[in-house]
Nucleic acid binder design. Sequence first.
DNA 1: AAAGAACGTTCGTTATATCGAACGTTTTAG
DNA 2: CTAAAACGTTCGATATAACGAACGTTCTTT
Lengths: 178, 178
Amino acid sequence: MDVLSLETLGRHLQTLRQAQGVSLSQLASRAGIAKSNLSRLEQGNGNPTIDTLWRLARELKVPFGTLVAPVATPVKESGVSVELIEQSAGTPAVDVYLMRLVPNTLRQAEAHAEGTRETLQVIGGSLEAGPAHDIRHLGAGEIHLFAADRPHHYRSHDSGATLLVTIVYAAGTRNHEA
Amino acid sequence: MDVLSLETLGRHLQTLRQAQGVSLSQLASRAGIAKSNLSRLEQGNGNPTIDTLWRLARELKVPFGTLVAPVATPVKESGVSVELIEQSAGTPAVDVYLMRLVPNTLRQAEAHAEGTRETLQVIGGSLEAGPAHDIRHLGAGEIHLFAADRPHHYRSHDSGATLLVTIVYAAGTRNHEA
DNA sequence: AAAGAACGTTCGTTATATCGAACGTTTTAG
DNA sequence: CTAAAACGTTCGATATAACGAACGTTCTTT
């Protein structure tokens, strides 16, 4: 596992606890775990079981997803993070991702299966994106819909960018591999 | 820990795996865990570490929260669940929600501040939605963009519906209530 | 039919997450 | 100024999560 993710989880755990103004001993006691265990977790060591996390999430009054959210699915290359929001196996199949680009970053994407279409909607910041013949500049709230069966790219500017990426597959092409 | 939750997690794991058409052995191998471990988890025994779940979530291409709280998020209060995905305070301000409607359900929404626009994109199932004068029927992958400063509604059909709801506020109207 | 491969399960072993006790330190009583 | 309490950390003991090998079964393949 990514050690960095565990450190992040630990820091996040500690932040939440202190924000609630409760001591490590108290939280451990109320959650029903040993304080030595919680201490180790906050230090970023260890690899908690889902049971332990469950108890802590309940006691911190945060939904489980929130507890792990800041480190969820770190598909990070350089300056780009992509998180899968939802997947549907219907007709057609649809995937939804939340993409974040730090300022002045370029992400190159391979062509998807033929007939695949992609929709971008910018949530924050701005970027220019699309396949080579259909590149557009997008600000917050704006939408770009293009054919994704060609290589395409996403390039953020000084402000960085947060955007939704929706991929709509042509019938039965979701799992076609080369 | 709640044994029932573990059973749910196990069943959910198995469902996701089979939906992706991959064998237990394959998934275990690709995720880098012993198949005996995965077998035990799918049976509803065990108490996996976050590391193990992380590997499985990544391989199943599912966000961590979805994997561990499969029944927690899809609230069945009135047949409609709304989850905040992302919020941006930029210019303009943008909110993104993931909405789920069980079959044949109606959700009425109040008018937002003047100038607010809403974008719907259907991920799975189908529905009819929009303000009274601009109602459209939408299937998976389809988009509807409309003025949200009037009352509007979302009505699912026999298949239910999963959709993205993006709200773009006119300058400085994020917190204005109708 | 036989041989092979892949499947999911079971079981003994190993690694480690968790526990509980003890510690030094800081804060609160008395 | 002590005494007591609470704090967070460390460490050995214990429970158990994860591993890897073996198993019986099902499906190909020849």
